[in-house]
Amino acid sequence: MPNLHIATLGIERIVPRMADMGVFIRLLSRSALGSPITQYTTHFRGPQKGGEMHIVLVDNGRSARLGMEEFWTSLKCIRCGACMNTCPVYRRSGGLSYGAVYSGPIGAIIDPTFNERKYSTLPFASTMNGSCTNVCPVKINIHEQLYKWRRVLAEHHELPFVKREIMHMAGKLMGQPTLYRTAINGTEVALSSLPRFVLYNWLNPWGKHRELPHPVKQTFHSWYKKNRLKDKKESKGGKA
């Protein structure tokens, strides 16, 4: 056993009193594993006899984050991992795909505070289902912060050109149902008839390693219009 113990930790790890530890020990393992406590819960108050112990408190942007009104509560994270375990994106993509030390939903709102450009896409990798916020034991509004980060990143022009333009178009499209439906029909036709080089090129980084989804024969909307809408009209007509 070496006689030197160096512990590095973020400044946000500090709790005010020894007695407050009970709250956090209780929350941690329950939210992480569903067990009451971890098997070894260790308390280091000082070095072993004849040894040395050093504690290095790391800031690395945390004190600056404390001043970000919409994002400072992310400092409350106790790293239990509950938000990751529940996240549909994380569960399919895994931690490495985030390309940062902090992965999962909490990573997606912390990482941009370290480097807005490098992690500009992370807040967009969310379906906004809010499951992370629901399970978070320290009640960080993760999905709301994901949404707020999107706005901040767009304002800071940290979105890649293609994504920005597509978002503009998507915004217009989705605001107008008729236009949207025509476009969807067009997409289905395009997906099934256009040659590969038109669909897979630099404008479509998503298609670099993946195939685009198979075109469907009929969208839900057109199916609904044909079947259900007709039934409804008929039954209404019957009553009258």
């Binding site: 009451p36 406590i37 971890t38 098997q39 070894y40 819960t41 260790t42 308390h43 280091f44 108050r45 000082g46 070095p47 072993q48």
Partner: peptide, 9 residues
């Protein structure tokens, strides 16, 4: 205690 551990199982 300088070193204190809670052991559970």
């Amino acid at each position: 205690a300088r070193y204190g551990v809670l052991m559970t199982g």
